[in-house]
Amino acid sequence: MKSISPAEWTALLLSAKVAFGAVAAVTLPGVLLGWLLARKNFYGKVLVESLVYAPLVMPPVVTGYLLLVLCGRNGPVGGWLGRTFGWQLIFTWQGAALASAVMALPLMVRSVRLAVELVDRRLEEAASVLGYSPWRIFLNITLPLARSGIFAGLLLAFARSLGEFGATITFAGNIQGVTQTLPLAIYSALQMPGGEAAAARLSVLSLLLSLMALGFSEWLARRAKTGRSTHAPCR
């Protein structure tokens, strides 16, 4: 088996970059939306829920297409970004990260929501009569107690981003060195005559990356568990 080519390395690093970018993009909205859906009742909750969870049930290509319509050069969001900041999402690694983030958001939100629902509301009441504002309760009580669910959600988001194919290829394209992540590179390799060996190598790389993410999350979970009694998160 031939050693890994520079182009394959590029695909690997790009995959990691896109996945981390997607996780970074998904963290804040994921936590806030998860908390919102777990704790608040408001007008239009069903609509927000449906929009967040839609990428989970829609074909990824459709999600990619909708992103294209919204964030493409002539789309309402994409056009505005281009005019105001000169930014372009389409055919860039940031675009690939955005596509991955949208696909990963429902998993993140679901995980956070379940974790927040498990946080004893009586503890939040106890904090409020100690003088904690809703925002301080969220930061000091709810989030720390839901942290294992938040970590799990981040990991799911990372894993989902590594495997993202349909939305990425539709929205960001399949440009080597720019948006060609591992799954896209594997697909391209298989399209070429004699590309099976390259596909196999890329698959092994993909597997290693996933295992590393899994190991990291295990380590985090174990640290969270053993640190529960002695380690106190900062206030």
């Binding site: 009586r122 503890l123 009441e125 409020s128 009569v129 904690y132 504002s133 106190a232």
Partner: peptide, 22 residues
């Protein structure tokens, strides 16, 4: 007036200590 601005302390039947703190 929301509870955190009332300055009224409560001791509940179930102590409700924060399990993630010493």
């Amino acid at each position: 007036v929301p509870p955190h601005l009332r300055g009224i302390g409560v001791v509940f039947q179930d102590a409700r200590l924060f399990p993630h703190w010493s």
